[in-house]
Design a protein around this nucleic acid. Structure first.
Length: 270
DNA sequence: GAACAGGCAACTC
DNA sequence: GAGTTGCCTGTT
């Protein structure tokens, strides 16, 4: 076990970051730590003495710094948000959340799966996908699985996805994998596009609408102005902002404001 | 058993 | 372009 210091708890709250609905492969353990897999690596994170530690070698820290977006000063960004009383509450409640820089294919595929599903089921389907088509990873004598590559999924016959019980989404997963492999969707190109252009490109994938596209753009492409609106967000915006409110007032980091609002709305503490 | 779920595509007007 | 409907599956 490594005991590598990653950041301070002021920079990142691991529980909020993993449980705010942006990722599906990190799970809380009985001791309060989180165990999960990303980029083909299974890791454990925990908080201790105001610090966040990760069971990963020093040489992997670059990967995790990027994954947890630790170079960005969230406190400074938050200052730029519109500070009504409600927004203050959301920011205060969500302080410590970090918008992850997830693997792009994993994010795209996961949010396609998320449509019309709740978190436990999304997690179940994603795990089944990894178990059946990912590569095994040994972690402390336990077997975990990497997220399968788009190539692996694209090669499958769509009927082979039935085992993950994703229902009508199987066709969408298959189509997305093939779009990525054929070059019809090129992540490097999406990276350098502005939000609007990237959105238009991603909407060309069958099974990807505005909501899923914005989740992918925010959590996969890390374009922070993306502002996904699902049923929870719709309700929160309607109840707490004037009619005709335009989220663009949150500026270039609107996606972070969205995550604070979403997390607060989901908490039921309002 | 019926209704519904963190959404989308296809079809209607 | 706004509104409706079916969709796999699992849960209530």
């Amino acid at each position: 076990m490594y005991h590598t210091e990653l950041c301070t708890v002021a920079q990142m709250d691991i529980a909020k970051t993993f449980d705010c609905g942006q990722c599906f492969r990190f799970n809380r353990q009985d001791d309060g730590s989180y165990l999960g897999t990303a980029f083909g690596r299974t890791v454990k994170l925990w908080q201790e003495n105001e610090r966040v530690y990760i069971d990963a070698p020093e040489c992997d820290l670059t990967i995790w710094h990027s994954f947890f977006d630790l170079e960005l000063d969230y406190a400074a960004i938050t200052e730029g948000f519109y500070h009504g009383e409600y927004m203050e509450k959301c920011i205060d409640f969500g302080r410590g959340i970090r918008i992850l820089r997830q693997d792009k294919w994993e994010a795209l595929c996961s949010f396609i799966i998320s449509q019309c599903n709740n978190i436990p089921r999304i997690k179940g389907i994603v795990e089944a996908l990894c178990k059946n088509f990912g590569e095994p990873i040994d972690y402390l004598g336990q077997v975990h699985y990497s997220f399968p590559t788009a190539e692996r999924i694209a090669r499958l016959d769509e009927s082979e996805l039935a085992i993950i019980r994703s229902g009508y989404r199987a066709n969408y997963i298959s189509c997305a994998a093939r779009a990525v492999c054929s070059g019809e969707i090129n992540f490097d190109e999406l990276d350098i596009m502005d939000h609007k252009t990237a959105l238009k490109a991603v909407l060309g994938i069958r099974g990807v609408g505005v909501k899923v596209a914005n989740c992918f753009i925010l959590f996969g492409l890390h374009k922070m102005e993306a502002f996904p609106i699902d049923v929870w967000m719709k309700k929160a915006l309607k109840e707490n902002f004037e009619a005709g409110f335009d989220h663009r007032v949150f500026g270039d980091y609107a996606g972070l404001a969205q995550q604070y609002i979403f997390y607060y709305a989901r908490s039921g503490d309002n």
